[in-house]
Amino acid sequence: MACFLVPAAEAVVTTIAAKVIKTKESRGEAVFDSTEQTAPEMVEKIPFSQKLGWLNRLLWGGSALLLFEHVWHGEVVPWFPFLTAAADPSEVTAMLHEMATAGVMMTVLVTAVWVGMLAVSSVMEKRTISEKQMKRCRRSVK
């Protein structure tokens, strides 16, 4: 009915957040996902705004294709109030219920996958950093 609106709403919030964070990063107020890193290691890290961009793309991409599916099924129309369920008071409750269940679960799943991606990228970053440090140590010993 309108489940795609929940991930779309999150996409709006994360897009704004990514822009704000990117502005701070470009100003030099580096916003990293870990504060434990030392200065040379920070150079290697992927900016958090870029990582948030992954979530944005997943959310916007999924929401766009789901919007098309809803148009296909006649649940979204190009005239006010745009949602056929919203025009019928008896269907509003069902629509809100679907948004609260399926919509929220979609958002949670996409965000959970993104968190998994953050964990994997963090491990890969740490590996790359430690490999580079090992190379530096070997060079200094020679």
Binding site: P7, G62, L66, L109, V113
Partner: peptide
């Protein structure tokens, strides 16, 4: 990004 995002969302739809 487009297809994985939609796949995840439709997966939830399928489970429901």
């Amino acid at each position: 990004w487009l297809y994985w995002g939609a796949s995840l969302m439709w997966l939830v739809d399928a489970v429901f």
